[in-house]
Amino acid sequence: MTVHPRVLDYPQSFLPGVIPDEAELTAGQRVGAGRSYGFFTDTTLCIGCKACEVACKEWNALPADDLGLRGTSYDNTGDLSATTWRHVHFIEHIAENGGRATTMPPFQSNWLMMSDVCKHCSPAPCLEACPTGAIFRTEFDTVVVQQDICNGCGYCVPACPFGVVDVSLEDGKAHKCTLCYDRLKGGLEPACAKSCPTDSIQFGELGELHDRAHQRVEVLHAKGVENAYLYGAPGTPGATGGLQQLNAFFLLTAPPETYNLPRAPSRPAERVGPSLAAGLATIAGLAFASLAMFAAGRAD
C-alpha cells in the first residue's frame, strides 16, 4: 500500500489536533454523508491479535467482560454483547481422526480466525423491529441505537439474525457496534479497522470494498485457496431471505456455521404479513361462527 501524499504534512509525533479527513490517510477514503460505508473483513489475513477488540473497547469506553477461560479455543470472549462490539473467533482444525492435523492448508494454517461485528444489515432486522425509532440508519448507511431514546424493550435482541445486539442489564438500553458513528462524523476511520495490523478489517465505501473483495477471492482461488468465498456481499450467502446485503461483509474459507454464521439468514419482517393474516383469518372465522351461534339461539 502506498502512503498518501498528505501524510507528509504531519511529520510530528504529537499532533496539535485531529487531522482533517484523517480517514483519507489511514483508509484511503474520505468520509462523507450520503454514501454507504461498511467493513470488509478478510479472514485469510486475520492473525487473531484481538487489537480490534481492544481498540473498540478503548474508543467506546466499554467495560471489560468476565475474564474467564472458556477452555474451547483461544477465544475467551465467546460472543458479541452489549459491551463487546468486536469479537475474534478462533477455530482449530482438527484432523479427521480427532488428533492433530498434519497437513497445512495455505493461509491461516490450521487455525481459522475471524473478527466478528454487527453486520449493519440492509435492511436491518433490529431496526425494523424497534418500536421506538431508537435504532436508525445514519447518513453513512450504518445502523445505530440512539441511547437517549431506547427504552429497553429488547425486541431487537431476538430479531437480529446474527445474535449481535443485546440489552445491558446495567443501564437497561440496547447496545451494539455503531461503526464508530462519532469517528465517521469527525472524518476518522473506525477504531477497529484503524488498529488492524494486517488490514484484515478494511473500512471503506461499499462499492469499492465489494470490488476489492471480489478481486481478493479471485487472487486466492488462483493461489489454490479454492474454498474462499464472500459472505454478506450482494448475491452471496448471508445476503439471503430479504436481506439485500450486509454492510459489514466477510471473506471466509470454511462453511458459515464454522464461524457461527447462518447459511441463509432471513428478514423477520417478512413473516409479519403472513402471520397477521393467518391469525386474523382464523379469529374472524370464529367470530362469525359465534355470531351465527348466538343468532341460531334466537330462532328456536
Binding site: R70, T72, S73, G78, D79, H89, I91, G154, Y155, V157, P158, C160, P161, F162, G163, V164, V165, D166, V167, P255, E257, T258, Y259, N260, L261, P262
Partner: peptide, 16 residues
C-alpha cells in the same frame, strides 16, 4: 453433523 462454533448460541434469546 451441522457444524457449530463450539456449541455456542448463534442468536440471542429474547429477554421475555
Amino acid at each position: 453433523q451441522i457444524l457449530t462454533y463450539y456449541g455456542l448460541p448463534a442468536v440471542k434469546p429474547s429477554l421475555w
